[in-house]
Amino acid sequence: MTKLKTVSQYKEGLLGKNRAALAQAITLIESQAAKHKHLAQQLMKEIYSHTGKSIRIGFTGVPGAGKSTLINAFGTYLCDQGYRVAVLAIDPSSTVSGGSILGDKTRMEQLAKHPRAFVRPSPSQGTLGGVHRKTREAVLLCEAAGYDVIFIETMGVGQGEGIVKQMVDVFVLLVLTGAGDELQGIKKGILELADLICVNKADGDNRKKAVLTKKEYESVISFLYAHSSSWQPRVLTTSVYETGDLISLWNHILDYKSWLIQNERFEQKRGLQLSSWLQSRIADYLYESFYGKQELRDTLKDVEQRMQKGDITMEEAFETIIHQYKQVNQPIK
């Protein structure tokens, strides 16, 4: 496919469900080039009315929990059932190039080749939450391109799950057997964020251990939600080799979505996603308006050294930096 140049070309390609056009559109919105930013903003305005019809699902888990392998099998199963599945897989960034290191297409080869799927690895670029700054925009582009199930795979537990939770409708936590040791490595807060918990790799001889681990997690969840009338996270066992497990996972996801709708929580959740997005954009802007200016970085380094020597107080250091910040960012009359 030739390189797209205009908003109308991008929009036509997206609404025509063209995967190459979607890939180019995501590259456009991820670009830091000034000439691309305006085009990207115009494109987002044009396609906005065609978004919001998917179910957005986040996956996180401890290292080695098998996130990519499960997404590969689960996504392929859904595609075979007639769904169109998009995967926004977040790789850790190279400290040299800033690009993706792992290359999730190689880990999701079966799904990536499916005609009803789209797999896009993006570098996290050091963003808290293990997601790219433009992941939310990428979700909307995927929806405009007709994908009705969207997975966001994070780098793993400990990467700011709260941020990912604010992007999705359903948040899935993958864990391994041996809950006694496992629970020590998973913070209570992460369990409370999860809507579903999958004891993964429940294969062969590990199946019995997975069932025991499932019961241990159910016991913990029951304790955490003993006095709550809200949704109580479900715990299930999953194996990529068992189609029945994939069916069960999908049914649990649909059950949770139905619960959200019945309790008038779904639209509320989507509204909170938008609020979180706005706050994130403001935070990014403020961060860039400070750390993006060399003179401010120089001032920061200087006052840090003076403060460490005892020449100025913390408050004086702060006031010096803020004064410089206001001068640097003062509008030119």
Results as ranks from 00 to 15, higher is better:
Glu192Val: 01
Ala145Cys: 09
Gly13Phe: 07
Gln305Cys: 08
Asn72Leu: 03
Ala89Trp: 05
Leu260Thr: 01
Ile247Val: 15
Lys45Trp: 05
Ile282Met: 13
Lys257His: 12
Val96Asp: 10
Val85Lys: 10
Ile282Arg: 13
Gln330Thr: 12
Glu46Leu: 07
Thr177Gln: 14
Leu141Pro: 02
Thr76Cys: 00
Pro63Lys: 02
Val87Cys: 03
Lys326Glu: 06
Ile26Thr: 08
Gln166His: 12
Arg116Leu: 09
Asp302Ser: 14
Ser248Gly: 06
Ser219Gly: 11
Lys45Cys: 08
Arg136Lys: 15
Lys165Pro: 02
Leu102Cys: 08
Met167Pro: 03
Trp277Ile: 06
Leu140Gln: 13
Asp104Gly: 00
Leu254Arg: 14
Ala283Arg: 14
Trp231Val: 00
Pro233His: 07
Gly158Leu: 08
Ile152Phe: 02
Gln324Met: 05
Ala202Gly: 05
Ile197Cys: 11
Ile47Gly: 00
Tyr287Cys: 09
Val119Cys: 07
Pro331Thr: 09
Ala34Arg: 13
Ile57Arg: 08
Asp302Asn: 13
Ile29His: 02
Val131Asp: 02
Gln273Val: 02
Lys11Trp: 03
Pro123Asn: 04
Gly162Ile: 09
Ser68Thr: 13
Gly146Leu: 00
Lys201His: 07
Gly178Ile: 05
Lys269Gln: 12
Arg56His: 02
Glu182Ala: 12
Ile47His: 00
Gly99Ala: 10
Ser228Val: 08
Ser100Pro: 09
Leu70Met: 11
Ile101Gln: 10
Val164Trp: 01
Lys67Leu: 04
Ile312Tyr: 06
Val211Cys: 01
Ile55Glu: 10
Asp255Glu: 15
Leu78His: 04
Gln159Thr: 06
Leu193Met: 13
Ile47Glu: 02
Glu218Val: 12
Gln125Asn: 14
Arg56Phe: 04
Tyr241Trp: 12
Leu260Cys: 12
Trp259Tyr: 15
Arg297Val: 15
Lys3Gly: 04
Gln166Ser: 15
Asn263Thr: 09
Trp250Gly: 01
Ala34Met: 13
Ala89Pro: 05
Arg56Asn: 03
Gln294His: 09
Met1Gly: 14
Leu4Cys: 06
Gly185Ala: 14
Tyr225Gly: 05
Lys5Gly: 02
Ser258Pro: 00
His323Pro: 01
Thr27Ile: 03
Asn18Phe: 00
Ala317Met: 12
His114Asp: 10
Arg234Asn: 07
Asn18Asp: 13
Gly130Ser: 11
His38Ala: 13
Gly271Pro: 03
Thr51Glu: 13
Leu173Trp: 03
Lys293His: 12
Ile197Pro: 10
Lys105Pro: 00
His132Met: 01
Asp245His: 11
Ala179His: 03
Pro92Asp: 08
Asp181Asn: 10
Lys326Thr: 00
Thr6Met: 10
Gly75Leu: 01
Gly16Arg: 10
Gly271Arg: 15
Arg270Val: 12
Leu272Asp: 08
Asn72Thr: 07
Arg136Asp: 09
Gly310Val: 01
Val170Gln: 01
Gly185Cys: 01
Lys188His: 06
Thr320Ser: 09
Glu295Pro: 15
Ala25Glu: 11
Gln81His: 04
Gln166Pro: 05
Gly99Tyr: 08
Asn263Arg: 10
Phe74Ser: 01
Ile312Gly: 07
Glu143Tyr: 07
Lys309Arg: 15
